[in-house]
Amino acid sequence: MGKGGSGKTTLAALFARHLAQQHVPLLAIDADINQHLAVALGAGQDEAALLPALGDHLDEIKEHLRGDNPRIASAAAMLKTTPPGAGSRLVGVGDGNPIYDRLVRPVGGVRLAVTGPFAVDDLGVACYHSKVGAVELLLNHMLDGPGEYAVVDMTAGADSFASGLFTRFDLTFLVCEPTVRSVGVYRQYTGYARDHGVRVAVVGNKVDDADDVAFLRDEVGDDLLGWIGRSAFVKAAERGRHLPIGDLEAGNAEALRTMRAALDGCGKDWPRYAAQAAEFHTRNATAWGNARAGADLTAQIDPDFVLQPATVAAH
């Protein structure tokens, strides 16, 4: 995530292509209101416009994920925050399931799902976060393991906090230009995120020289993980000429390897992950979900279920 225009989508595409080159289980998701990840991965504009949208199939996604969970009366009763419980269907990163079969497509060698654009019919009557809710549901029900990667291009700035989606990641890479405005977004984001134990690593972008690096170090300190320098490779992609990822400049490729190493070093605290899901589901249920459903949707929380390999095997 990061400030609008900071290079979030560029970095998401570079990192996804870097991982795909190594043939690891990978799913990329475009959850930005500006849907540009497909094009950044190499799709033409017409091809990108034809990709199926998660947000258009939210009811089907809910129906699949609820399975025969007795705590969920119907797909219509599910919120974007509804956590899994006994009987729920889970998804992996690279497994086959009806959701992926219908809504995930290969783009530039990367398996990609998109939330879909904010359409004309949505103007004035809908919230983009209703579309992003499909991503939150998927991640709430995703059982991923070491060496498997879900890379999500998030919407800009503090919009990420409009739901519990910001807690669903092992590591958030915050893209930061060497500017006061970009650093301001970093401070705002970390101020919210760290109250919830969210890990944040800063990746500088559009870095020209040692002064840029020094500025970022002064402003973000030890959070600075690495940086992407000005890149002829990226410029070519922005002009529609997508080169093999192996042609990326050595220093920028090293930054991607550093990102993967940092991510691989993050242990997953499954009980905390479940507790955060329950917290935000409770918030949504009490704020508006219960009134809409005419029922107490906090009862959807299964207190004995923690999404982790051992619990799933036991069920």
Rank of each mutant, 00 (worst) to 15 (best):
M1V: 11
G4N: 09
G4Y: 10
S6R: 06
L11R: 04
L14Y: 04
H18Y: 15
Q21W: 14
V24Q: 14
L26G: 07
L26Q: 06
I29R: 14
I29S: 14
A31D: 14
Q35M: 11
H36V: 00
L37I: 11
L41C: 09
G42T: 14
E47G: 09
A48N: 05
I61S: 13
K62G: 07
K62F: 13
E63A: 15
H64V: 08
L65D: 07
G67W: 01
G67R: 05
N69W: 09
A73V: 13
A75Q: 12
A76K: 15
M78W: 09
T81Y: 03
T82H: 07
G85K: 11
A86Q: 13
G92M: 03
G94P: 02
G96W: 03
Y100N: 00
D101N: 11
R102I: 03
G109E: 12
V110P: 06
L112P: 07
A113L: 10
G116Q: 00
P117F: 01
A119Q: 10
G124I: 04
G124H: 06
A126M: 14
A126F: 03
C127T: 08
K131F: 00
V132G: 00
V132K: 09
G133P: 06
G133I: 01
V135C: 06
L137I: 07
N140G: 14
L143H: 13
L143W: 06
D153E: 01
T155Y: 00
S160K: 01
G164N: 02
F169T: 13
L174T: 12
E177A: 07
P178W: 02
V183Q: 08
V183T: 10
G184T: 07
V185W: 08
Y186S: 09
R187F: 03
A193M: 11
H196R: 12
V200Q: 05
V203K: 02
D208S: 13
D212Y: 08
L216H: 04
R217E: 15
R217P: 11
R217C: 11
E219G: 08
G221M: 02
D222K: 04
D222N: 02
L225D: 07
G226W: 07
G240R: 06
I245D: 13
L248C: 13
E249F: 08
G251V: 13
L256N: 05
R257W: 01
R260Q: 15
R260C: 01
L263A: 11
G265T: 08
R272E: 12
E279G: 03
A287H: 14
A287D: 06
G289W: 00
G294I: 05
D296C: 10
P303Q: 10
T311D: 08
V312I: 10
A314H: 11
A314Y: 04
